[in-house]
């Protein structure tokens, strides 16, 4: 399947450099391309993972594992395939973590008779994050808007959440999102449409 990415998703990469230097022309060039790619996606990937697993340390480990797997398995692939492949790995790692946690929660619920102990909740990464913005008012508004969006996202079904984050946050087009999610383009469109409708209904027209 051919993958075409929107130009805005590569805004931090020098387009002339990408055109001139192919990933196969030299290992050093490829290493530089990989470094550029990972640097470009790492912050957004971490935030997406944090939203997915609600745990800052786990999210970091998941992003690091996705980086290593991309380099180990797919660095020889064309550059334009790296992003959907990277997010495919990230999505799978997040899914694995969610599944393990669901099993653990069921075991704990059975063991404790369904009584949840105080302090079980992992800290909200948004609330625990330090924010060195210049304007405290603007920063506060932005943080509150993100916190509302994150709460609404957490209520979405996993597939809708993934489709929305990959399309909106990462800027992947429908084909690349389908590749990252491992589903058809039609499914991506459906999940994305439902996610947007649910989020708009939840957050209201005046958000943020």
């Amino acid at each position: 399947m051919s993958v075409t990415l929107p130009a805005e998703s590569w805004t931090s990469l020098p387009q002339a450099g990408l055109a001139a230097i192919g990933p196969r022309e030299g290992t050093l060039d490829q290493a530089r391309e990989l470094d550029r790619f990972l640097k470009d996606v790492e912050r957004r990937a971490l935030r997406i993972a944090e939203i997915g697993v609600h745990d800052a340390d786990e999210a970091h480990d998941i992003v690091q594992e996705a980086m290593i797997q991309l380099v180990r398995r797919y660095s020889a692939r064309p550059v334009e395939e790296w992003k959907p492949l990277f997010y495919r790995i990230l999505k799978n790692r997040i899914h694995d973590f969610q599944r393990r946690r669901a099993v653990r929660s069921r075991v704990i619920a059975w063991w404790t008779g369904g009584v949840r102990e105080e302090g079980d909740e992992t800290p909200d990464p948004i609330e625990s994050a330090e924010a060195p913005d210049a304007d405290p008012g603007t920063r506060l508004e932005s943080e509150q808007a993100m916190a509302s969006l994150e709460r609404a996202l957490k209520r979405l079904p996993a597939r809708q959440q993934q489709a929305f984050m990959l399309r909106t946050f990462e800027g992947l087009d429908v084909a690349a999102t389908a590749q990252a999610m491992g589903c058809s383009e039609g499914s991506v469109k459906t999940h994305y449409f439902r996610a947007v409708q649910a989020l708009r209904g939840e957050l209201g027209e005046h958000w943020p």
Partner: peptide, 12 residues
């Protein structure tokens, strides 16, 4: 949503 998310990623 993209703008709010991008700002949160920059605030790491």
């Amino acid at each position: 949503a993209r703008a709010v998310f991008a700002a949160s990623a920059q605030r790491l």
